[in-house]
Amino acid sequence: MKIQHCLILICLGCTGVSANAASFDCHKAKTVTEHAVCDHRDLNDADVKMATTYNIIKRLVPMGTRGAIQDQQVKWLKMRDQCQDNASCLTDVYKMRQQKLDLYMNRVYQQGPF
């Protein structure tokens, strides 16, 4: 688990994403949901963590799995957007997605060595 956290921190540093910025440009936020993510620090942090984990996993899994994960991400984004500006709902859907992505990450670790 420590390796996962190190990878995320390294990727955050490499991508230039600051710790207090969502995975998207908050100045260009269009939806009520995007504005809510930008307005709440906890949601903002959850968004950065989820997006970073998602991008790492996309590079580490085989093509078939990658396609499935991308399809799941699209479905998840639609579910997230149904929360609108409900912070509790958004917190729950981010936790759910992060847990799913963590399962994929754990499978990658099990197939090591790294």
Rank of each mutant, 00 (worst) to 15 (best):
C11D: 02
D102F: 03
A29E: 04
Q4A: 15
C83K: 08
Q84W: 07
D42G: 05
R66P: 01
L101Y: 04
V74I: 13
V93Q: 10
V37F: 03
T52W: 02
Q111K: 12
H5T: 15
V108Y: 06
N44M: 14
Y109C: 13
N86H: 12
V74L: 08
Q98D: 08
A22Q: 01
T52G: 07
M79L: 04
T33G: 01
K28E: 04
Q110F: 06
L43H: 06
N44W: 05
E34F: 06
M79F: 10
V74H: 09
I56C: 14
W76P: 00
V74S: 07
A68H: 08
L103Y: 00
Y94Q: 07
W76S: 02
V61K: 11
R97P: 02
N106C: 05
L60Q: 11
R80N: 04
K30D: 04
T31V: 08
C11M: 06
H40T: 15
G16D: 02
K95E: 14
I69R: 04
I3V: 06
I57A: 03
R41K: 13
G13I: 05
A46H: 12
I8N: 09
A19V: 12
Y54N: 02
A29S: 12
Y94W: 09
L9I: 07
L90P: 12
M79H: 13
L103I: 09
D39F: 02
K58M: 11
H27F: 07
S23K: 05
Q110I: 03
G13P: 01
L90W: 11
H35T: 09
A22K: 02
R107Y: 03
K75W: 11
D102M: 08
V108K: 05
Y104I: 11
H27L: 07
A46D: 13
K58R: 09
L103C: 04
I10A: 13
D92N: 14
